[in-house]
Design a protein around this nucleic acid. Structure first.
Lengths: 344, 344
DNA sequence: CTGAAAGCGCTAACAT
DNA sequence: ATGTTAGCGCTTTCAG
């Protein structure tokens, strides 16, 4: 009754109903279903159902060059921001009837290249790449193949490429505004690595926000971490204290940096938030679990993923839709680590 | 020079070299390369290289029913144990030349079914499913299609199915042995949900281990959490204290449960580890970050994933290799939360 | 050693 | 409204 390969094909249905495969194809294709008489159509649908027919995407893809699948590439599946992003991507894509396939480059350019290559070979209909620094070859290749591409977590200079990114300047400003409203004027800052876009935007965003409030910027109140780790946070915090310029608030570019500060502050007899208000960024697990819990900036990674998926779907359904670049706003989360400045 | 679709095909190479496509196919296929004269082979390889030929897996798959891709299904990409597992799977699979495609069921049976269905349609060569409770339909379908399947994080009664699981009984025993060696005899236990295999194995493993040391099991020293959350941990801890039977060690089935206990113990004037030794399970981020840091059981998820991948590859390369079921041993991680029982 | 021909499962002109 | 035909890109008999 069904073909040797075991799976039901159009032909199986056709011979069983006594029509040609093309008729079956038409019935099973929503757009062309009207071309076939109701009576036959019904019988075909019934038989297809009964036999448990499933179209073969390989054959379909070979013929039409469309597969309904979307490649999603992330640089580090273990870093919690990516699973969250992926969740957003998947939810939207699946709802729209696409099938996302995820792959993980482990921050290796060579592997990323290989993955994208592979996905192009598989004729994915589109690609979402979340990468610290997507290989230019990828961008070129996609353009050449005409595969719609959306970047996330990183914009790209080429304004031709759709991208979703996060407004870190805004996040920085939200934090400064919050502290100012609590009466703080002497604000120290520990920056993250400046070779990452996020590190830069948060740093300059913080400076700009401070200036907007006419706050004097003292060089001794800035420290620069080489990486977003507790160790670097501790080192920078020590540095700031040794600089001798006192501060009532300590802003950091990442929760991990803040986590590293808390011990150092304690060593110097400074308690949070009584003596110093301390803040993080990213609202990681750390933030809620620390004691005191940490005021931080929540970055809506899920929403970012969802937006990227929507962007891609737009381009898929309307190939000459304009390229769009979306910037997502983060949110201030106030917890125990920030308090009104002691009026003394 | 190349076909209308933009990508280079066998035919492009064939016409350029002046041979038939089948000859090109033979050259590009390692097994059949010897069938072709060296001179022609070399020219073909050169041209293929130059044109940047990449075989079309859709066409290949349609013809041969093999695609070189492996489906990987996880129930919850946001839960850190799965990214770790996936990492292990991917590393091994990619090394072996397979292309893993990940998809996330979000614990929804319906979605899991759809994903697997889709992957079968895509003619994946094999499937690795990490699922709390894989839908039986999946198992049946794979068997029917002859698609090799490996389960991970969950065994299945059917001994016909390869599976990788973790030895939670051993983990439980390691913990009890550790506490006994520190002089504890009055050990309380907070169990995780007993409707999960892990919850059950840890619970019974703990009881068995205690019995092996001739420890009297008092019912008042057991509490049962409905979920592995801090809230449930706190509730159970309160219950144990109210039961009135004193204990010098408190073992829990999950780090989150332990995290919930610490505050409750403090409320009752009990400090960790001076008054009570406290332990978790799974060695999550919590464990290292808590104060005091938590003695826990590390479960090697990465290795589990890697083993699952190896199992699958074995079956792929030797279809009638015996079904194997692997049980992976966890490891005790001693930190600050456990101490020798005060000899008083 | 190489070419010719068939066909995997499907769709899309082009007939009728 | 339906059937015919051709072909997507590849492998694999079967001839020569």
């Amino acid at each position: 009754m069904n073909s040797p390969r075991g799976r039901v094909t159009l032909k199986d249905i056709a011979t069983l109903v006594g029509v040609h495969t093309s008729t079956v194809s038409r019935v099973l294709n929503p757009n062309r279903r009207t071309m076939v008489s109701d009576e036959i159509a019904e019988r075909i649908v019934a038989v297809a159902e009964e036999l448990g027919y499933r179209p073969n995407p390989l054959a379909y893809g070979l013929k039409t060059n469309r597969t309904g699948s979307i490649g999603v590439v992330v640089p580090d599946i273990v870093n919690p921001i990516f699973p969250e992003t992926v969740q957003g991507i998947e939810d939207i894509l699946i709802d729209a009837g696409y099938m996302p396939f995820l792959s993980n480059s482990e921050h290796k350019a060579e592997r990323e290249l290989r993955i994208v290559e592979n996905m192009r070979d598989q004729h994915v209909d589109g690609l979402i790449v979340a990468s610290g620094s997507p290989h230019v070859a990828i961008l070129m290749a996609c353009k050449e193949d005409g595969i719609p591409l959306v970047l996330i977590h990183r914009t790209w200079d080429d304004p031709e490429i759709s991208a979703v990114s996060y407004d870190d300047s805004l996040g920085a400003r939200l934090m400064i505004d919050h502290l100012i409203s609590l009466g703080h004027r002497d604000i120290a800052y520990i920056a993250g690595p400046l070779d990452s876009a996020g590190g830069r935007d948060r740093y300059f965003g913080t400076k700009d926000a401070a200036q907007a409030h006419d706050i004097v910027i003292d060089e001794r109140l800035f420290a620069f971490a080489d990486s977003n780790t507790e160790e670097e946070g501790a080192r920078c915090c020590r540095e700031l204290i040794l600089n001798g310029k006192s501060f009532s608030a300590l802003v950091t570019a990442h929760d991990s940096l803040a986590a590293g500060c808390i011990g150092v502050l304690a060593e110097h007899g400074l308690s949070v938030p009584e003596d110093v208000s301390l803040t993080g960024y990213s609202d990681t697990l750390y933030a809620a679990m620390m004691t005191p819990s940490l005021t931080s900036i929540r970055v809506p990674y899920y929403e970012g993923g969802a937006e990227a998926a929507r962007l891609l779907i737009d381009r898929l359904q309307n190939p000459d839709a304009p390229v769009r670049r979306i910037r997502i706003s983060p949110e201030l989360i106030v917890r125990e680590s920030t308090a009104r400045r002691f009026a003394g």
